[in-house]
């Protein structure tokens, strides 16, 4: 299958997934016992103003009209307007998305850079002190609630030591880089790093733990494969056996898990953004859920679903690069 055909197929799949997810949420909203109008509009608003507000928001229409209107908007790239702030969801999302992406990339870097060496050390020193230490930290990592870890880091590193700020994001990466490149001013990028460090570590920790365990067990599996013995028999130095062959084979499932873990990555991002008041999609979504701001909730979910499908697509492409046994045919369901 050509890459183009594969891309088209996956795009259609993505649209279907996003549509289905949206429809489910939309349906749930109509069977919900929570009355949106009374949740949105304070009780002291006079009835006439109340009516006109409801009309304004389109809540007086039957469900299928609301649904078709919304779908029509989404098809044209319009995610509607927030019930609460009356600002376009597109605009809100564009403001918020970069912060989340930056956090996600930084946390992925933290987790990959730490976990793979830890996993390798653990596997190549099996049942020795480094292995036990790495396993212990991995166990701590998967058992620690993300939000609590964040708060403890704030307590230790920010409140007690004062090394990093407790919350916020003063510069986006883009603005910071602009400042650096155009004006040669490093202030922005330093501020960016300064603010993103703790959130990235907090979000990354769970994955450090997860990927360390996974890398370790995959390495051990691969080390017991017959081909490893053959590599040694032909005299290949242990460094090459470990890195060029064993690790490479072990990373194939690690890449899959990184892709599959996207969902819990978003979960983590939601929590971490709340803890550090990081102005990303997660914090935005929590606020929308608290205020029953349906267009914002729906818009965010669509963006998340599309990102999920895109990441899976990327993982499948990456797969064909790192594992020659996998072809696009095999992976395209």
């Amino acid at each position: 299958m050509s890459l183009l055909k594969f891309t088209i197929k996956r795009t259609i799949h993505g649209i279907v997934v996003a549509w289905a997810a949206l429809t489910i949420i939309f349906a749930l909203r109509f069977i919900s016992p929570v009355d949106i109008a009374s949740a949105l509009i304070p009780p002291d608003v006079p009835p006439t103003a109340r009516e006109s507000l409801i009309e304004d928001l389109g809540l007086d229409q039957p469900w299928y009209v609301q649904y078709l209107r919304y779908i029509g908007g989404v098809v044209q790239g319009d995610l509607g307007y927030s019930y609460v702030s009356r600002i376009s969801v597109n605009q809100l999302a564009i403001n918020r998305l970069p912060a989340t992406l930056e956090l996600a990339v930084a946390a992925t870097l933290v987790s990959v850079v730490l976990s793979i060496p830890l996993g390798v050390i653990s596997a190549t020193n099996r049942h020795q002190v480094p292995d036990y230490l790495a396993s212990f930290f991995a166990l701590l990592g998967i058992s620690t609630p993300n939000f609590w870890l964040g708060i403890m880091l704030v307590l230790l590193v920010s409140v007690m030591l004062g090394w990093f700020p407790t919350s916020g994001r003063e510069f986006g990466f883009y603005e910071a880089m602009r400042l650096l490149i155009l004006d040669g001013n490093r202030y922005g990028i330093i501020q960016w790093l300064y603010h993103i460090t703790l959130p990235a570590i907090t979000l990354g920790t769970y994955y450090v733990a997860l990927l360390t365990r996974l890398t370790r067990s995959e390495m051990l599996d691969q080390l017991s494969e017959e081909y490893v013995r053959v590599l040694r028999a032909k005299g290949l130095p242990e460094t090459l056996v470990t890195f060029k062959h064993v690790l490479r084979n072990s990373l194939i499932p690690v890449v899959t898990v990184l892709g599959l873990q996207f969902g819990s990555f978003i979960n983590g991002a939601v929590v971490v953004e709340v803890v550090f008041r990081w102005p990303g999609m997660g914090e935005f979504l929590i606020r929308a859920i608290r205020t029953v701001d349906w267009p914002v909730i729906q818009g965010t979910l669509i963006i998340i679903a599309i990102t999920w499908v895109t990441i899976n697509f990327g993982v499948d492409i990456l797969y064909t690069i790192i594992d020659p046994r996998v072809t696009l045919e095999g992976e395209s369901e």
Binding site: L28, V34, F265, V270, V271, L285, I289, L301, I304, V309
Partner: peptide, 24 residues
Amino acid sequence: MRSVDVSLAIPGLVLALTIFSIIG
């Protein structure tokens, strides 16, 4: 399985929060 696949496109915590806000 298609339903499961679709629902997996929404992260667990986000789905939980959404359903929570629907039910109260």
